[in-house]
């Protein structure tokens, strides 16, 4: 605030305009529900991206996290939260129906569920996998494992235990 008081009036106007523009121009993509200025969003409309893969995330900000990796070139689906009956959030409060409709309309070959590795993230993933089973699409889950550059000695026991369960042949 003190910083703003010391700036010229024009800076304050520019900031105010930017906030108004944010509210006016930024919306959710009608297909994947990511944050966008154009509808459908650039990931949904980009023909170079792999349309056979949909990565399901809880929140719009998770799209940015995965995009930063440059390791994924498919499309997204933002659920808008995780299933939590204790908080009154069931599948109908999330964009689950929309995901099922997309799977039948777009016929992807793989759904990657990239929810957080906690109780609600895991339940949501297991639920989606049951729900999508009849469609025959391959539902996958992000792997559990050790952080890159991490030290075995510093990994918590559960992460290490899950990494042992999820080991793979070299």
């Amino acid at each position: 605030m003190f910083h703003l008081l010391n700036r010229p009036r024009a800076d304050a106007d520019a900031l105010a305009d930017a906030i108004v523009a944010l509210k006016e121009r930024v919306r959710l993509c009608s297909r994947c529900f990511a944050i966008t200025e154009d509808d459908p969003c650039t990931t949904c409309s980009d023909v170079r991206r792999n349309a056979a893969m949909i990565c399901v995330v809880a929140e719009a900000k998770d799209v940015f996290a995965i995009e930063r990796t440059s390791a994924y070139d498919g499309r997204y689906h933002v659920l808008g939260g995780l299933i939590s009956p204790m908080d009154g959030i069931g599948p109908s409060q999330l964009r689950v129906r929309e995901l099922v409709d997309r799977v039948s309309a777009e016929s992807p070959t793989e759904i990657i569920v990239a929810t957080n590795p906690n109780a609600e993230g895991e339940a949501t993933a297991l639920y989606l996998s049951r729900l999508l089973a009849p469609s025959g699409v391959n539902v996958t889950r992000l792997a559990y494992g050790l952080p890159i550059g991490g030290d075995l000695d510093y990994a918590d026991e559960n992460t290490l235990a899950r990494a042992i369960e999820g080991r793979r042949t070299l």
Partner: peptide, 16 residues
């Protein structure tokens, strides 16, 4: 009954 009944969700909790 905190949310609408959902058999698949019940089975998902059992899986978990």
């Amino acid at each position: 009954g905190a949310i609408a009944p959902d058999r698949d969700l019940l089975l998902a909790y059992n899986d978990e």
